[in-house]
Simulated scan of single mutants.
Amino acid sequence: GERSTVRGMIEKTRNSWHAQKGEYDFSHEVKDAMSGCLACKACSTQCPIKIDVPGFRAKFLQLYHTRYLRPVRDYLVAGVESYTPLMAKAPKVFNFFFSQPWLRSMSEKRIGMVDLPLLSTPTLKQSLAGHSAYQTTLEQLEKLGEQDRQRHVLIVQDPFTTYYDAQVVADFVRLVERLGFQPVLLPFSPNGKAQHIKGFLTRFAKTAQKTADFLNRVARLGMPLVGVDPALVLCYRDEYREVLGEQRGAFSVQLVHEWLQKALPQPQEIPPQTGESWYLFGHCTETTALPASTQQWQKIFARYGATLENVSVGCCGMAGTYGHESKNLANSLGIYELSWHQALQRLPRQRCLAPGYSCRSQVKRIEGNGLRHPLQALLEIVR
């Protein structure tokens, strides 16, 4: 137990020291090559041979770090779902410190992380203070009759929109309500995506199993489960199935547009489209895994007489935590410049929409103000 752990740490320290001295190991070259992966998963969905590079990168990192020490930033990234809910209890205090130049400089030089995002103020809990969406418990849901259950929508929280972009979740609660349904915010349960990206596969398997068990219990209620961020929702379908196999269970979490497609009544006729167009900047993981998502959003907007145009762009360059790592900063900004920056310069910013949290965060970092989620525009359209 303890002796083997200590021996392992000594061995990793020795190996890492030799690596710093320039001792050759081909695995270092493999790691450098894989560090350029943006985890968009186009390789596993659009490529004819469908090789899952993010998947085998995670396995490689797990093996690599049995020999070499991990950088501190890996632990910070992997633990984001543990400490963020605690920080969100005092967001103004933590935002004050995160805004200090000396702390940002130390983070960049000592940890290798830049432009850390600020927590949402007001918090989601404050935005929905007294709302039934926050007060309804699982026990109360289990006591509902079949007819009442059909009007409920269960919102699956993710760490990024809940704690760093809370207005999106609050607006989804209001949209669900405006459409005649009863929204309920499920208790936050870690997704584990960040653990998988950094190769903490043992920890990820435990996280995934715990959350899968929770979501399977909830799914038995027969109410739709909906999440707002594409990368996190698709993790339930892909990485959970890969790591857990049959132990994952049969729960299904829908994206906002998937739920809307089923929940909205089919119109007798589509109203004529009027007014200024909206512009959709798709999340690269979503558009490669779910190519029809853009058309589905367009049809939803059309039901209310609104025009939604697709903007053909590649990756925004943030790609989860990729753009927050100092060593990737130049690449992140360069990728953004290739398509996103140019498109945003020619379109009205207030009419541009992006479903991905990372994408909105990247735009806010570079342009000074962010984009809205399509659901927020829909909330404005639906009266």
Rank of each mutant, 00 (worst) to 15 (best):
E108Y: 02
E108K: 06
K109S: 05
K109N: 15
M113C: 12
M113I: 14
M113Q: 13
D115H: 10
D115P: 08
L116G: 09
S120T: 12
T121M: 04
T121W: 06
L124A: 01
L138C: 05
L138Y: 15
E142W: 07
K143R: 14
Q147E: 15
D148C: 14
R149E: 04
Q150A: 14
Q150L: 12
R151C: 08
R151I: 09
H152Q: 11
V153D: 04
V153A: 13
I155P: 05
I155K: 08
V156L: 13
V156W: 03
V156I: 10
Y163C: 02
V168A: 15
A170Q: 15
L175A: 08
F181V: 10
P183E: 07
P183L: 13
L186V: 12
P187C: 07
P187D: 04
F188N: 05
K193T: 07
K198W: 03
F200W: 10
F200C: 06
R203P: 00
A205N: 03
K206F: 09
F214V: 08
L215A: 02
R217L: 09
V218H: 00
V218A: 10
V218K: 00
R220F: 02
R220S: 15
G222E: 10
M223G: 00
L225K: 01
V226K: 02
G227A: 09
V228D: 10
D229E: 15
D229G: 11
P230W: 05
P230Y: 09
A231D: 05
A231M: 04
A231S: 15
A231H: 07
L232E: 04
R237K: 15
D238N: 07
E239M: 07
E239T: 14
E242M: 08
E242Y: 01
V243A: 01
V243R: 07
L244E: 05
G245N: 06
